[in-house]
Write a protein that binds this DNA or RNA. Structure first.
Lengths: 333, 333
DNA sequence: CTGAAAGCGCTTACAG
DNA sequence: CTGAAAGCGCTTACAG
C-alpha cells in the first residue's frame, strides 16, 4: 500500500541501509548511487514514516506546548511565533491545554511519559507547575514563557515587567499625574509584583509615595478594572490616572471612569499593559505597555530547539523589552 | 533506562503479549493475572511508548489541524473547541499554519505523507486547497471548518451565513433603516456571497432593492471598512446603516462614520459579523451576528473523530446557527 | 562505499 | 487463558 524504504531499496537495487544513508545525507555514499536512489525516491513519492523514524531514533522531532487557555487575547501571537519557529526547524507542534482541569493535566503528563514529544514549551502553568517540575527533573527539556511565578529552575523567556511599570509611571508623571490608581494582576504572580514595583519606585523617585489604598489587587479581568475604579470613587478618594496590569482590566477601568461621567484622559488618564488588538478599539484608544508576545514565542522555541540540538540549557531568563505605546487614553505632554 | 513492556512482562512473570492484552483490556485475560500485571504497571510507572504503539498499529491517535493564521481574532475559540474535544477522546493535536507561504504548505504535506497524524481539521485554506484535496483523495480523512469556498467533496462545519445576513437585515429594517451600505468580505468566499444574499433578499422582501453602489467589496480588514464609508461619503451617497461582513471591518466603518462627525447609531447604525471580543469594546459597542466558533471547533473535531473511529464520513455540511447580538451601535426599536 | 542483522517498543495473527 | 514469533518501518553499529 504505502511505499516504504524497502520498496525504494528494491527499486534502486540497493540495501535499505544505503537508502537510509542518502535520506540522512551521510557522507559515505557514492555520488552515482545516491543520485539513483534520490531519483527512485522522487519517482515513488517516498516519504519516511515519522513514527518509524521516531521509534528508531528515540526522538520524535516534535515539541509539546502547554497553555492554560487558547482564548486569551495575546495567546495567538505567542502561538504564531512558536509555530513558525518550530516548523522552520522541521519540528511538529503538539498542543495541550489546561482547560479541563485535573483531567487535562493527567492527559498531558501521560503524553509526556509516552514520549510523544522531545521538549516542552509552557505558558504560565499555575496549577500544573508541580507536575511540570517533576517531569523536568526527570529529564524533559522545557522552557517557560512569561514565567509568572519565577522558577529559576527552568530556562524562560520574560519581558521587562519592572521597566514596563516604570515607563508607565514616567509617562504619567511627565503629563502631571500625581494621584494614580494601580489595578494590579494577582499578586501571587511575579509579573504583577514587578510591574507594581517598577511603577511605585519611579513615582517614589519623583517624590510621590503611592498610598496603599490606591493599589487594588485585580485578577486581569475587565470586571476587576471596573470594580477597582468604582470602589475608589465610592470612598471618595481622588485620582487622576489608572495604571492597570493588563489591557482587559484597563478597558474595564476606562469604561467605569467614563460611566461615572468623568473624561478620559482629561480627568483621568488610563494606561494598560500588553497591547492586545482590542487596545486600539477602546474609546478612547488605550495607551499601554506593549509586550512582544510573538517574539517571546519565537525566542522560547529557539531556546528549546537549541537545547534539543545539543546545546546546554540556557542559564538565566531571556529578557525581552517592553515598549510604551501612546494613544489617546493617556496622551503625551 | 525507560521502562518498557518487556520490563513489565519480566517483573510480572508473563509474556509481553499478555501485558499488551491487559493494556488494551482484551477480554481473554485471567482476572488474577490481569490484576498482577496492573500492579506491576503501576509500580514501575509504565506508560506505553506512543511511537511504538503508533508504528505497530498503523495510526497515531493524533489529528492535525491546519489554519491560515493563529492571530485572527476568533481563531482561539475554534482552537479551544478542537483541543478540548480531541483531548477528551485521547487524541493529540498537531498544529500547522500557512503563515510562511509555500514553505508551510510543503512542510505540511510532508507531514501528511509521513503519516504524522490520522486525520485533518482545516480552517479556510485559500491557497492550500489544491494540496488538501489531493491528500484527501489519497485517503486522508479531513473536515473543513467554516468552508469559505464551498467544497462539497469535504465534510464540513459551517454557520448559517445566509440567515445571519437576513437577521441583520431584519434588525435594521425593524428600526427603520432603508438605505444600508454593505461592506462585504472578499466575494470569492462563499460565506461573503451568502451573507450578502441573505441581507439583500430580506431587504427586497420588504420592498427595498439595494443598489449596487451601496455594496462595496472589502477584505475583512478594518481599513476596508473605513475606506468603504469614506468612498460613499465622498460620492455624497446617503446611507443610514452599515452591514459589514466581519467585526473588524465593522469597527473600521464605525470609526469612519464617527470621524466624519456623524452619530452612531442615530445617523448611521452599524452591524458586524462574528462577535469577536473586540465587539464589546468599540464605541459604541457593536451589534453583530455571532458565529459559534467554539462549537464549530468542537463539532468539526467530533465529526473527524467519529470518522476515524470507523463511522462513514458525514454527508453534507453540519450547519450551526448564528445569533444576532444587539448592542448600542444598532439598538433595537 | 555497501550490506546483513539487530534493535527501537509495541501489536497481532497463530498455535496451543 | 497464554506465549513465541513475525511484523510495523526505520536506524545504526559492525563487518567487509
Amino acid at each position: 500500500m504505502r511505499v516504504t524504504i524497502a520498496d525504494v531499496a528494491r527499486a534502486a537495487g540497493v540495501s535499505k541501509t544505503t537508502v537510509s544513508r542518502v535520506l540522512n545525507t551521510k557522507a559515505e555514499v557514492d555520488r552515482a548511487t545516491a543520485a539513483r536512489v534520490r531519483e527512485v525516491i522522487d519517482e515513488l513519492g517516498y516519504v519516511p514514516s515519522s513514527r518509524a523514524v521516531g521509534l528508531a531514533r528515540g526522538r520524535s522531532r516534535t515539541v509539546g506546548m502547554l497553555v492554560p487557555s487558547l482564548t486569551w487575547p495575546w495567546m495567538g501571537e505567542v502561538l504564531q511565533g512558536v509555530v513558525d519557529t518550530v516548523e522552520a526547524a522541521g519540528y511538529g507542534l503538539l498542543l495541550f491545554t489546561c482547560n479541563r482541569g485535573v483531567e487535562s493535566v493527567e492527559w498531558f503528563t501521560g503524553q509526556v511519559s509516552a514520549r510523544a514529544f522531545d521538549g516542552l514549551l509552557v505558558v504560565e502553568p499555575e496549577n500544573t507547575l508541580a507536575a511540570i517540575t517533576l517531569l523536568h527533573r526527570k529529564g524533559l527539556p522545557a522552557v517557560l514563557i512569561d514565567d509568572r511565578g519565577h522558577h529559576p529552575e527552568f530556562p524562560s523567556v520574560v519581558t521587562t515587567n519592572h521597566d514596563g511599570g516604570a515607563s508607565a509611571a514616567r509617562h504619567l508623571l511627565v503629563t502631571g499625574r500625581t494621584r494614580p490608581l494601580v489595578v494590579t494582576g494577582p499578586l501571587r504572580f511575579g509579573c504583577a509584583r514587578e510591574r507594581l514595583a517598577g511603577f511605585r519606585t519611579t513615582y517614589a523617585e519623583h517624590g510621590v509615595e503611592i498610598p496603599s489604598e490606591m493599589v487594588i489587587e485585580g485578577d486581569f479581568t475587565e470586571r476587576s478594572g471596573s470594580l477597582a475604579v468604582q470602589q475608589l470613587m465610592r470612598h471618595g478618594t481622588g485620582f487622576d490616572a489608572v495604571f492597570a496590569h493588563n489591557d482587559l482590566s484597563a478597558a474595564g477601568a476606562l469604561r467605569a471612569v467614563r460611566a461615572a461621567g468623568r473624561n478620559v484622559p482629561d480627568d483621568v488618564a488610563v494606561v494598560g499593559f500588553d497591547d492586545i488588538p482590542m487596545a486600539r478599539h477602546t474609546e478612547p484608544p488605550l495607551t499601554t505597555v506593549r509586550q512582544p508576545m510573538r517574539l517571546m514565542g519565537e525566542s522560547a522555541a529557539r531556546l528549546l530547539l537549541e537545547h534539543l540540538g545539543g546545546a546546554p540549557p540556557a542559564a538565566g531568563p531571556t529578557i525581552l523589552p517592553t515598549e510604551l505605546v501612546v494613544r489617546r487614553s493617556a496622551p503625551g505632554p
